[in-house]
């Protein structure tokens, strides 16, 4: 069972739209709730609504909460203010950007990440956008070159979305099934195949050539699975 994800917006419409976007990734693997607006017609935050949602979202693995603007944070803290310490401790209010963080968190949680791991990914979720718009790439990918005991594959991305959005999420979910270290190279950039934010920094579009490298006990299986996924245009379910 994964930690649950709660998204708090100032707008009910934004909440609905974001929920739709995130559920596409989370599917049935992660429980996601969104709260938006003072009510469905009024912008703002409603601590009582937020408290009800946090109660619904409660589970032993914890709840990750992402919020849009300052008063959403105030309202969420207020909603939690009457919970006893142990109960409150299972709720993590994360300072990640809302949309990008929700996508990153849902991807990680649906692949079995813990609450803390998902929160960490969410906090780094602006990196792909920054990279795409020209900031220097992040340094978190495995730095070693292909060595003995590793194997690699060169693939062309034929899917129209390249390695973005849902294909990227499926790619990461597949990679996370394996124990090997898996990296993806696109041009000069290298990414960790098990990190959605790292993959998205590659900016690999349709037609791009990528090099998959796996090192570890199940490297061959990992490469086979990922190759199959890419070559089937991500038609397979992981």
């Amino acid at each position: 069972m994964a930690a649950s994800l709660v998204l708090i917006c100032h707008s009910a419409k934004l909440a609905d739209g974001l929920l739709e976007l995130v559920q596409q990734i989370a599917r049935s693997k992660v429980v996601v709730f969104a709260a938006g607006g003072l009510d469905k017609d009024t912008l703002g935050s409603n601590p009582e609504q937020i408290r009800s949602i946090l109660e619904c979202a409660e589970n032993p693995e914890g709840t990750l909460v992402l919020m849009d603007l300052g008063s959403s944070i105030l309202a969420t803290e207020m909603a939690l203010s009457e919970w006893p310490v142990e109960r409150r401790a299972r709720v993590l209010l994360c300072d990640a950007p809302l949309v990008e963080g929700a996508v990153a968190a849902a991807t990680q949680l649906s692949a079995g990440a813990s609450l803390q791991e998902a929160a960490a990914e969410a906090c780094n979720a602006l990196q792909p956008k920054q990279a795409q718009l020209g900031a220097p790439p992040p340094q978190d990918a495995p730095a070693h070159a292909t060595a003995l005991g590793t194997d690699s594959r060169l693939l062309i991305l034929t899917h129209p979305m390249g390695l973005h959005a849902r294909p990227a999420a499926l790619f990461v979910q597949t990679a996370q099934r394996f124990r090997s270290e898996i990296s993806v190279r696109h041009g000069q950039r290298q990414a960790n195949a098990k990190s959605i934010t790292s993959i998205l920094t590659l900016g690999a579009n349709q037609g791009a050539e990528i090099e998959l490298t796996a090192e570890g006990i199940d490297a061959q299986q990992a490469l086979a699975a990922l190759t199959s996924l890419v070559q089937s245009d991500f038609a397979q379910r992981p």
């Binding site: 607006g37 003072l38 009024t42 912008l43 703002g44 935050s45 409603n46 601590p47 009582e48 300052g70 008063s71 105030l74 309202a75 803290e77 207020m78």
Partner: peptide, 15 residues
């Protein structure tokens, strides 16, 4: 106030 103000003033004046 908490349940009807909507903005930051709700939690703040509410508290």
């Amino acid at each position: 106030l908490v349940s009807t103000v909507g903005g930051a003033a709700g939690p703040l004046y509410g508290t």
